[in-house]
Each structure stands twice: as structure tokens, then as C-alpha cells.
Amino acid sequence: MWNEQGFLRISIAATIVIAALGIIFGILSGSFSIAFDGVYSLADAAMTGLALSVSSLIVKSAQRDALSRRVHNRFTMGFWHLEPIVLMLNGCVLMTVAVYALINAIISILNGGHELRFGIAIAYSATTMLICVVMAIIGIRLNRKLKSDFISLDIKAWIMSGGISFALLIAFLIGFAVQPTPVAWVANYMDPIVLALVCLVMIPLPIGTVWKALTEVLLIAPVELKDHVDHVASETVRRLGFLSYRAYVARVGRATQIELYFIVPEGLPAKTVEEWDALRDEIGAAIGDESANRWLTIAFTADAEWAE
């Protein structure tokens, strides 16, 4: 069974193959939409490679060998913050490529379209659609277990690429069929029209990923996580007779960051370090999700300024 890095490597290799085929077949067939498919795949391969690098850094930071210790000494806060940055950049790049292609498609339509070698175009579309379907199915099955945002975005990219290939295939078949008919002039418009329609569908697809990544970059507190931490903290305050608490939460990529400060009464009877640690363990267990991706800080103080 592949892990996250293994799937991303295979995905990069397959994407590069499709990109090369798209550019070559786009030139041979005279199709802007096929050439766009190749350029789009090339951009997607570059972004997937960046995602793979970040994923490897995150995994390496959780290891305990000599190399990971040296890396951790330079990046003591980990690499989680890079994940939403890469996801946001990925989505923005793909949307930008699609917007540019849409503009070119509109210009081509206004200029009367262009002739196309439909046989080459049909062969390319069928081949790439098959590759996209296989990669999407593999990714979906794998991500049921891994639940990786990187793989999830890559699956969307494969589905989008497959949708492009399917739309191109249908359009090219229609263009090929109308060539010997009185409406043969329609064939000249098939390539730019289908490119424009595909771009209109593709442009909004990464918006959800970009927005989610932006909220993580801006450290906007997830409502459900904040409510859960508030509930645990307020119950602790009530049960132990503390004065109040301050909670700071964020979700950055696969990491959950939580800081809890409890304001205790002045003159509270002294506790041993072991007793405070036991209380932290109890609160941490109540919060849950204990893993290498949870960054939890719990502090106790009689001075509220330390918690602000």
C-alpha cells in the first residue's frame, strides 16, 4: 500500500507524461485546448512536486534520527505552516492558468476559430482520459485511509483533468462527425468553444481549497475546535475552582495548535510538579486527538497578564 509520498511521486510521473503528450499532440493537431491541457498538467506537476517536498519535511520532522534532529533545530515550530501555503499557491496557480486559457479561447472564437486534425486529437483525449480515471480511482481508495489534504487536492486535479479530456473527446468526435455535412464550418469552432466551457467549469473548483488554506494561513480559529476546547476548559475551571481561562486555537494544515492558560486564585495551596503534570494529562485527554500533529500547551498562573 502506498503512503502519501509514494502516491504523490507516481502522480507527478503520470502528470509529466500527460503534460508532454498534451504539448506534443497539441502542436501536431493544432489544438489550443490540448496544448492547454498539457500546460495545465505541467503546472499541476510542479505544484504536486512542491507538495511532496513539504509532505516529506513534515514526516521527517516527526522522526527521531540525527538528520531530523538537525532539521528540527532549525525549524523548532515544525513545517505544518507550509502545508496551507502550498495548497493556496497550488489552487491560485491552477485558477490563473485556466483564466488565461479562457481569454485565449474567447479571442479564438472572435477570430473565427481554426482548423483541427481531429484524428490525432481524438487519440490524445481518449488516452489521457483513461490515465486520469485510473489515477483518480487509486487516489480516492488510498485517501480513505490517509485522509491527506495533499492527496485530496491531487485527486481533484485528476478529476478536473479527466473532465477536460472527456469534454475534448466529445467535442472532437462531434467536430469529426460534422466535417462532411453542410454545417462543416462548426468544426472550426469546436476547439475554442470546448476550451472556454472547460475553463469556466475549472476556474471555481479550487476556490474551496484556497479559502480553507487562507483561513489556516491567517490562523482563523475553527468554530468546532474552539467550542470543544472552551467546553473542556470551562469544565476544568468549574471543577477545580479556578478563576478563568484563556484559549487560543488554530488548525494549520494537518496540525492542531492549542494553547490553554488557566487563571488560578492567589494563595492556592502548592502542588508538586507531578501533580500539575497529571492535571495537564487529564485536560489533554479530555481535549483528545493526541498525536504528533497536536501542539498542546497548558499553563497555570495567578497573573492574568501572562495569559493575554
Rank of each mutant, 00 (worst) to 15 (best):
8 L>H: 07
144 R>C: 07
76 T>Q: 10
171 A>G: 13
99 V>R: 06
291 S>L: 11
247 A>N: 03
3 N>W: 02
118 F>E: 06
103 I>G: 11
84 P>F: 06
298 I>P: 01
144 R>T: 06
286 A>E: 08
180 P>N: 02
114 H>S: 13
275 E>L: 08
163 G>K: 01
269 P>H: 08
209 T>R: 00
140 I>C: 05
135 M>T: 11
282 E>F: 05
249 V>I: 08
43 A>T: 07
52 L>N: 05
15 T>C: 03
207 I>N: 10
221 A>F: 04
132 C>N: 14
4 E>F: 04
16 I>T: 03
266 E>K: 06
106 I>S: 06
79 F>A: 04
40 Y>E: 05
278 A>D: 15
115 E>Y: 11
129 M>V: 13
256 T>W: 05
149 D>L: 00
109 I>D: 01
13 A>N: 08
90 N>F: 01
275 E>S: 12
177 A>M: 13
83 E>K: 05
73 N>Q: 12
261 Y>P: 01
24 I>D: 05
129 M>G: 15
58 I>M: 15
272 T>W: 06
177 A>I: 11
171 A>N: 04
45 A>M: 12
206 P>D: 02
242 F>W: 10
73 N>A: 14
18 I>T: 00
183 V>T: 06
288 G>D: 04
107 I>S: 10
209 T>C: 07
203 I>E: 08
271 K>I: 04
42 L>R: 04
287 I>A: 00
172 F>G: 00
290 E>G: 09
259 E>Q: 11
148 S>Q: 01
267 G>K: 03
52 L>C: 00
148 S>N: 01
234 S>C: 04
168 L>N: 11
235 E>K: 07
278 A>Q: 14
124 Y>I: 08
147 K>R: 12
266 E>W: 05
25 F>G: 04
123 A>Y: 06
157 A>Q: 11
285 A>S: 10
134 V>P: 10
140 I>P: 02
215 T>P: 01
295 W>T: 06
182 P>G: 03
73 N>E: 15
262 F>G: 00
287 I>C: 02
277 D>V: 09
218 L>I: 07
145 K>T: 12
202 M>W: 00
232 V>E: 04
192 P>V: 05
65 D>N: 15
69 R>S: 14
299 A>T: 15
136 A>V: 15
225 L>T: 06
75 F>W: 06
177 A>L: 15
177 A>G: 14
47 M>L: 12
43 A>L: 10
146 L>Q: 03
99 V>N: 10
119 G>A: 15
290 E>W: 09
159 I>N: 14
91 G>F: 00
128 T>M: 09
154 D>G: 03
227 D>I: 15
52 L>G: 00
185 W>K: 02
12 I>S: 04
6 G>N: 14
65 D>R: 13
163 G>S: 09
244 S>G: 08
234 S>R: 02
293 N>E: 10
232 V>Q: 01
261 Y>K: 09
